[in-house]
Design a protein around this nucleic acid. Sequence first.
DNA 1: GAATGGACTATTGTCTACAAAAGCCAGGCC
DNA 2: GGCCTGGCTTTTGTAGACAATAGTCCATTC
Lengths: 257, 257
Amino acid sequence: MTAQPEPVSSARRIAAPPSMSTLAAEALREMVLSGELQPGDRVIENRLTEQLGVSRPPLREAMRVLEQEGLIVQVPRKGAVVAPVTPHDIYEIVSLREEIEQIAVRLGVPVRSQERLDRLREAFADLEAAAEEDGAPGVVACSFAFHLAIVGLAGHRRLEDVYRSLSLQMRMCMAMNRRARAGIETARQDAGRHRPLMELVEAGDVEGMAHTLAHHGQRTYLLSIEDDAEGHSPESRAWFARIRQEEEEAMRHDGHH
Amino acid sequence: MTAQPEPVSSARRIAAPPSMSTLAAEALREMVLSGELQPGDRVIENRLTEQLGVSRPPLREAMRVLEQEGLIVQVPRKGAVVAPVTPHDIYEIVSLREEIEQIAVRLGVPVRSQERLDRLREAFADLEAAAEEDGAPGVVACSFAFHLAIVGLAGHRRLEDVYRSLSLQMRMCMAMNRRARAGIETARQDAGRHRPLMELVEAGDVEGMAHTLAHHGQRTYLLSIEDDAEGHSPESRAWFARIRQEEEEAMRHDGHH
DNA sequence: GAATGGACTATTGTCTACAAAAGCCAGGCC
DNA sequence: GGCCTGGCTTTTGTAGACAATAGTCCATTC
């Protein structure tokens, strides 16, 4: 308490020196999310080391992280592939993601933490800016960031981590080539729905939030998937049927108004 | 078909050749769960390599996995420590764990998948056997396995993975020396409460399951923590207060009956 | 006597090299 | 002609060594 030998405390916090393994993880993640690597593609270690300019050990650590995030799967002596996604997987990802949103608004909206609200407002501003300027995939990232900030209202790190992981997986699904257009289109449609969400947050309307999120736009992208008969489970089939019905009802409602 | 140089085809499926990194992860996880390593303890790589008999690269991969599981935290150039747990962390772990149980029974109990029910019955049998035979920590592991099997009814891999991770963190908390006794004691108390749960599952009573799980015994162990003023957040404080009140009410109810 | 500077040690981050297993292709045998 | 079998290639798993950084301790100085 007598003397602090290091007065560089305020700027220090931000400057975290990123290790090679962390950088490799980010790069690999980006490759998956951008669609450069598609579900089912093999992930060869040697191939990537020269591509990313790192050695194999850090790359392997990065792959272990991606595996935990659900973006790739590793089979012990056979190698790794980008996680294939079946309709059942879509069901798991989206249903759990919605459940977590519900939990988060229930926990977080009533608290009204200024710090977290500011973070959300910032994400909202970014989203609106991105929606106006470029019609590019930047909107997708901002949309996910906005939703993440909503979940962040709860101040529940573990809840947020799970949500982040699921969002990554959902983005990976959207990057599958045949769906890509639908994904971006969905994001554009959603852009208009974010303002009502923001207003509900400001008003502290938990019920409204829960209801709006449950019928939020990112679902519409699911309708492009249903046809695939392969990889359905009984649960996923029933769930898709329910979603489709709800969406049709919502669209009919929109048409009538 | 002429001659099988390796007639071990049926047993093969089970015998997945575990790599050193996997073994290291299991060993390290066991050290944390048993309390040999306690929250806050530093995890030195060299120290562990000679202890576990593996080299550093696989050990580092193992640590990355444990980090994702929430059992250790790594700071870039400073090293790793066993994840410290504050009351707020306890709040996060237990509250999310309960939410997931609720989701799981809602999704899983009505399905009545024979395969998953058999798995649950097996876990229940193991638990009862362990409860009768040894009064040791084997009961704790079986109790967690039983709960995991309940969540498994949903057939929702991602839900199950999150639950598994949270259970590991909860076991780690229980391994903190001052709470250890309370943890095991709790497990013993719980043993008697598992049969009703099992019966509700067999009866397909979703509401009953949800209610019983919400007031299930593993909460009682939380009462031994509340005093710690350090590391509370507003959310955790309110939550602990609510739990304590509910538990007192339940105990009073038990006393009156 | 206390604070500051520097050197040292301990520890992490990374790379190259080696060993083993799995898949593949060609050649031979039935 | 088809299938097995042998070796070869590719790829993964692991080890040991080197480089760089952060923390620590001691000596020196005010």
